[in-house]
Design a protein around this nucleic acid. Structure first.
Lengths: 153, 153
DNA sequence: CATTATCTTGCATAATTATGCAAATTTAAA
DNA sequence: TTTAAATTTGCATAATTATGCAAGATAATG
């Protein structure tokens, strides 16, 4: 059998399919479902697959279930992040980032998740982000920090 | 020691604080950090706390780390305002409140409806609220005011 | 108060997930 | 094709997390 990559990709596709269609609570159950669909792998491989796909186990009132980690996808966007940004400006107290329409939320999430101590937080609308710096005194430093996080020169 | 609830709430607050400020990769490490902050609990209790708070362990390229679950079951939390709040911070001119994902609007409404003369207004995103104080001069007073309104000690 | 019910926690351990290593397979290179 | 490098996988087990149970603590009730 040639083309291992396709084999893995289709297995990953099935895993994502399954996780989105039913509530799976552990890997043993997951394994069974895969088997029913003709995919036989060990728990070890499944564990690796789930981590690669960013599929996580979340607690719920009635047990646990697997779901796709939304934050995981942000890393993919990071490469094109700078293309979504129109301008970064500031006054004495605030930094304002303008983005393409509908992209503010996505960009803001990256800033939030950077956990930079320079930034107190962000609020994003549709195409505008307001960034609150930790202090007004070195706001230029915060600005530099933002540019680094977003990968802008 | 009376008022167990407060004790638990402050422990939960510390847990949320820790998880949002650093990358914690397992419960043993978590336990140590809590101990450094004067909270001694077993791994079992920590496990229960994390599940109650919807804090999950997510895979990353360089290991695992805990984070607050987006789209967590807020049903449990909905009753307790203070449990929805991760941190309250400020700089010279603004106050920034971080909340659980999707809870910023709900918390902001409480602040808005308090009609406090200390607060000019709020702007809320998904998990961040910006509060604008009446004056920059006594921002700490506004901070206290907010904590009273939200029932935080 | 006294009594009962509810809640919280630790202990010990079960349940579950992650991973080092070696074998097998696949891909790349010569 | 042969050889070498890289990738994938299973096995066994380590590492980590969840939980039944009992004891103690707290809250509720009369």
């Amino acid at each position: 059998m040639s083309n291992k990559i396709q084999e893995i990709q289709s297995r990953h596709a099935l895993i994502k399919e399954l996780v989105s269609k039913q509530e799976i609570s552990n890997q043993a159950q997951f394994q069974k479902l895969l088997k029913l669909n003709g995919i036989k792998i060990t728990q070890a491989t499944l564990s690796r697959d789930l981590n690669e796909l960013g599929i996580i186990r979340v607690p719920a009132p009635n047990g646990f279930f697997y779901k796709i980690n939304t934050a995981g996808d942000q890393s993919v966007l990071r490469s094109r992040l700078s293309e979504e940004i129109i301008s970064i400006d500031h006054n004495e107290t605030l930094i304002v980032i303008r983005t393409f329409p509908g992209r503010a939320q996505g960009v803001a999430i990256v800033l939030d998740q950077s956990n930079s101590t320079e930034l107190l937080g962000t609020v994003a609308g549709d195409d505008t982000i307001i960034v609150i710096p930790r202090s007004n005194k070195n706001i230029k430093k915060s600005l530099e920090n933002i540019k680094i996080i977003l990968g802008i020169n």
